[in-house]
Amino acid sequence: MQHHHLGRTALRVSELCLGTMNFGPATSEDESYAILDRALEHDINFVDTANQYGASAGVGATETIIGNWLAQGGDRREQIVLATKLYEPMSDRPNDRGLSARNIRLACDASLRRLQTDHIDLYQMHHIDRTAPWDEVWQAMETLVAQGKITYVGSSNFAGWTVAQANEAARSRHFLGLVSEQSLYNLTERTIELEVIPACESYGLGLLPWSPLGGGLLAGVLSVEATGRRSSAEMARRVESIRPQLIQWETLCDDLGERPSDVGVAWLLHQPAVTSPIVGPRTIAQLDGAIHATSIHLSSDVLDRIDAIFPGPGPAPEAYAW
């Protein structure tokens, strides 16, 4: 497992980031522990969660599971770079959401309690808050850094111009600003190549793609379909919208002798702007597959074939202007 600097920082994170959204609603607490332990065995030191994760198990449940795992000791906390997020509503109360200074402070303290730790390595804004002035956001984040509760600040689902706006505001305050961006990025969703990736490269942000397999589209859905298993109505609609591409995709993966899910992650690992794709396994077997993806080398010819199947939008502004 290789480790890369997180953006322009000296912090080193594994080339895969363990996403934990399934912990609680889809994966039991005991199996979540086993996945976390397996990740450490393979030198995956980057663990990502969010305060709202938990779904049917209840908001905050995922952080609680991670906190219980950390509480087992064995230098678990010292071995990982722990990332969490805030923004989404945690209750029906109007101030338990967003990026107000109040919510940033209270949400951080609540995450620390659930995670059973005294600091968060990477505290991320899960979405932009158009009502929160950057001076308010950065003042709150600066206070948390000064208190030792967080070390770095990241963003998620930001537009390219928002990355620039945020970091210029931070620069004016002599603050480090954003060091990473989590974005939807996979072969079926390449919009961020227009503006977000250039902004990340310009400002020195690490790029952490989420949904690397397009919600399952790139994981071999046609092969599953051939076994007679039914997909949800929404997945069936998505498959039909790009069936010709999926046929070519799964044929290419067969030619390589690799599973489509592993090649989908490997493609992201071959993108220069990517620091660490976020993989969210429900089982140890799924984690093992993602780990295998780090050993897959895609030649320039194969990358060209993949680009022909799933072409990107091209650079901005050329993609939409003369």
Rank of each mutant, 00 (worst) to 15 (best):
S156N: 05
A219S: 15
Q182C: 05
W161E: 11
G204L: 05
P198I: 05
H174E: 09
A199T: 04
Q147T: 06
L208Q: 03
S155V: 00
V153H: 01
S202R: 15
Q165H: 15
T227C: 12
N167Q: 10
S223Q: 15
A146V: 08
S155F: 00
C200I: 00
Y203P: 01
A226H: 06
N157S: 13
G206N: 02
S155T: 01
G160A: 08
Y185Q: 04
E189N: 15
I150K: 00
R171K: 14
G148C: 10
E201S: 08
A236D: 09
A233L: 05
R230K: 09
Y185F: 15
T191K: 04
E193C: 12
T162C: 08
A226L: 03
L194E: 14
Y185A: 06
A219R: 06
A226Y: 01
I192Y: 01
I197L: 15
L187N: 14
V145D: 02
I197P: 01
K149A: 06
E195S: 10
S223M: 11
P198R: 07
N186V: 09
L213H: 12
R190P: 11
W161L: 06
V153I: 04
T188R: 04
G216F: 13
G204Q: 03
H174Y: 11
V196K: 03
Q147F: 07
R230E: 07
Q165D: 14
Y152N: 01
R229Q: 14
L144F: 10
L208P: 01
S202H: 14
W161G: 02
A199H: 07
T151D: 02
N157K: 03
V163I: 14
G220C: 09
P212G: 10
E225A: 10
